[in-house]
Amino acid sequence: MYEGVVQDLIDELGRLPGVGPKSAQRIAFHLLQADPADVRRFAEVLLEVKDKVKFCSICFNVAEDDQCRICRDPRRDPSVLCVVEEYKDVVAIERTREFRGRYHVLGGAISPIDGIGPEQLHIRELLTRLGDGAVTEVILATDPNLEGEATATYLTRMLGPLGLRVTRLASGLPVGGDLEYADEVTLGRAFVGRQTAT
């Protein structure tokens, strides 16, 4: 549609997750109109991220060093391990300020349709981490969708023989939601996880 490098830019931006053709076009034209110093700084940050950021050797969260800041923090409770699918899930949980343990990032969820099995995830490394006996509880914080449920079920079966307390995040109705709009699985979970009214 556009000539040469402009179309190349739109195409590359369109490959980003959550960026459709219209958004890619808007971002491309924003960059074309932006101050060259701002665009140069943006490009340098992208290159620097690819250069400096790696994955934590312990939990597979993003890090600039061999270990992420959470794994290095001596104030974190080493006996509780929260297993998440992606490193963005760590950020979401950290924002709540409710969890003071450590994390393990699987790098995805089991999805046979996408060709992702347990071998493609950091499950072997999780089992190795649990081998030293320091962890007493594993919290499974996978997404409440088909892939997340399959992953949690698989991990529950794998971890059962280790004698650990394996828990799953509660799920149910969102605050401010209407019952009529809740799907059957969410509503069913809300009934199973009901609590005594206080």
Score class of each variant (00 low, 15 high):
residue 145 N to G: 08
residue 68 C to G: 02
residue 75 R to G: 09
residue 70 I to G: 10
residue 85 E to L: 04
residue 18 G to F: 04
residue 168 R to K: 14
residue 147 E to K: 05
residue 188 G to W: 09
residue 27 I to N: 07
residue 81 L to Y: 01
residue 48 E to M: 12
residue 64 E to Q: 14
residue 187 L to R: 07
residue 194 R to Q: 06
residue 21 P to G: 02
residue 186 T to V: 12
residue 124 R to V: 01
residue 44 E to V: 01
residue 112 P to I: 01
residue 182 A to I: 06
residue 62 V to Q: 05
residue 190 A to L: 04
residue 49 V to P: 03
residue 119 E to F: 01
residue 33 Q to T: 02
residue 192 V to N: 04
residue 13 L to Y: 00
residue 60 F to Q: 13
residue 177 G to T: 04
residue 159 L to P: 08
residue 69 R to N: 12
residue 152 A to K: 05
residue 138 V to Q: 06
residue 190 A to E: 02
residue 184 E to P: 10
residue 148 G to L: 00
residue 56 C to P: 03
residue 75 R to I: 05
residue 33 Q to N: 15
residue 182 A to M: 08
residue 10 I to R: 00
residue 147 E to H: 07
residue 94 E to A: 03
residue 113 I to W: 11
residue 72 R to Q: 14
residue 46 L to E: 13
residue 30 H to F: 15
residue 130 L to N: 01
residue 147 E to V: 08
residue 165 R to W: 05
residue 17 P to R: 00
residue 139 I to C: 08
residue 174 P to F: 10
residue 37 A to V: 13
residue 169 L to Q: 10
residue 16 L to P: 14
residue 5 V to W: 03
residue 60 F to H: 15
residue 190 A to W: 07
residue 187 L to Q: 02
residue 67 Q to V: 11
residue 197 A to P: 02
residue 51 D to F: 09
residue 26 R to C: 10
residue 68 C to P: 10
residue 128 T to M: 08
residue 23 S to L: 11
residue 154 Y to D: 13
residue 155 L to Y: 03
residue 39 V to N: 11
residue 91 V to A: 15
residue 115 G to W: 01
residue 126 L to K: 06
residue 59 C to F: 00
residue 193 G to E: 03
residue 170 A to W: 10
residue 168 R to H: 09
residue 31 L to H: 09
residue 197 A to V: 13
residue 120 Q to W: 08
residue 149 E to V: 06
residue 194 R to K: 14
residue 95 R to T: 02
residue 177 G to D: 02
residue 133 G to A: 11
residue 77 D to P: 01
residue 111 S to N: 15
residue 121 L to K: 04
residue 41 R to F: 05
residue 195 Q to S: 12
residue 147 E to R: 00
residue 197 A to T: 12
residue 66 D to M: 13
residue 58 I to V: 14
residue 180 E to A: 09
residue 168 R to E: 01
residue 8 D to R: 12
residue 113 I to F: 15
residue 173 L to K: 07
residue 123 I to N: 03
residue 100 R to N: 13
residue 63 A to V: 12
residue 174 P to H: 12
